[in-house]
Design a protein around this nucleic acid. Structure first.
Lengths: 223, 223
DNA sequence: ACCTGAACACCGTTCAAGT
DNA sequence: ACCTGAACACCGTTCAAGT
């Protein structure tokens, strides 16, 4: 009775006790992030989920910031790149960005990471590279392309974050609504009259609108 | 000698011991945020700066999230609104956004808050109202104006955040550079060839570029 | 009504000690 | 080389007790 058997099945993907590795840590962290939001991304919670102490993680990862970068990139694994038969450069551009958006929607935490963490992992780079190539096909070059890619990704990230933070904290949403309700129509006439347009959350249409604005704007500036 | 005179100079704004108030708390929090970045915005640090315990703050503020919203709004107090003699609607629009950007630059923490916190305070509203009015002057109405105002503010916020997070963590900047240096020109040809354009941080020009892209894009979509 | 101390349930990170 | 326990220096928030 001294050594209790370490055979437990129940838990998600841990047969007996997989050896630690950067990969396993990142994978576990991403799952926590998906399930619990950004609050789930903590060294201690990750360690607990792996049946170990927090200090063990530091063998594979320098700190939480670095781990966050890995988690973000690993989360972007699911972004889909339309192949060259899938329509015009513009369609394909919209489609990657839509895929990117969808991935961020799936877990609010990732959307937040995408705004807060500098994306330098291979998946982030692949997305940027793909966007740059589409822009080039569309005749958008050099600085316009570089800054444009950034702007497009930023826009998608923020739409996702805004959406997800609304879903997350219904309290805050109510706070917003009620604050807009009681808006002084004399002090803020435009906001008051545009209340419905600003709160409208038909994300799809709004997202498309923004992408087109940005794209057309870039194209116009180039001519 | 019972009521000590409230004329003391030495400490920033605390004579002997001012009574607590929401205003004083927010003011202190903002100062901490400016001096120490986002890490300085903690209930315990604010309490310590006010010579009291953290629990005392909860009389005036429901939680850290709410306090953060107040701090953001109070920080936006310094944004300058060009008067109607200051040029075309477009010039004035660019000028508020520039002022907004400058305020965010001054304290990295505020830039982060502006991306993370839902801005519903009076100052935030005033800025949005001002932008909506300029857009209207420029012939941009309803949904375009509502979404456009959001997009413009988002862009400014993110430029400030990106800049400030670079200033803050030189480590990360180095990490980025070196990651771009060793970029596989075969796997990421476009990124490799645009390396200089993407890293270039002449913020001024880039900021203007983005604003013009967005504005022109909106105008184009309206026609 | 306002303020406080103490406690609860958390953090990230380090480091000496074990295997 | 990898893992661990224990410790350090922090968090936000609550709550009974004081004034």
């Amino acid at each position: 009775m001294n050594n209790p058997p370490k055979t437990v099945i129940s838990r998600r993907s841990r047969p007996a006790k997989e050896p630690l590795s950067k990969d396993l840590i990142v994978k576990t962290a991403l799952e926590l992030l998906k399930n619990e939001g950004s609050a789930g991304l903590s060294m201690r919670k990750i360690a607990k989920a792996l049946d170990t102490g927090p200090s063990s993680l530091y063998v594979y990862v320098t700190n939480l910031q670095e781990l966050s970068a890995y988690v973000l990139d690993y989360g972007l694994d699911k972004v889909v790149f339309p192949s060259s038969q899938d329509g015009s450069w513009k369609t394909r551009l919209f489609d990657v960005l839509n895929s990117y958006l969808t991935v961020l929607y799936e877990s609010p935490g990732i959307a937040e990471l995408s705004l807060t963490t500098i994306p330098i992992g291979p998946h982030s780079l692949a997305i940027t590279e793909y966007i740059l190539q589409r822009l080039q096909e569309g005749g958008i070059h050099s600085t316009s392309a570089a800054w444009g890619a950034d702007l497009l990704l930023l826009y998608a990230s923020s739409v996702a974050f805004e959406q997800s933070s609304r879903d997350q904290k219904g309290t805050t949403l109510l706070a917003i609504s009620s604050s807009y309700q009681s808006l002084d129509a004399i002090q803020y006439p435009m906001i008051a009259s545009l209340r419905n347009e600003m709160t409208s959350s038909d994300g799809e249409e709004r997202f498309r609108w923004g992408l087109e604005v940005i794209l057309h704007g870039i194209l116009l500036k180039q001519e």
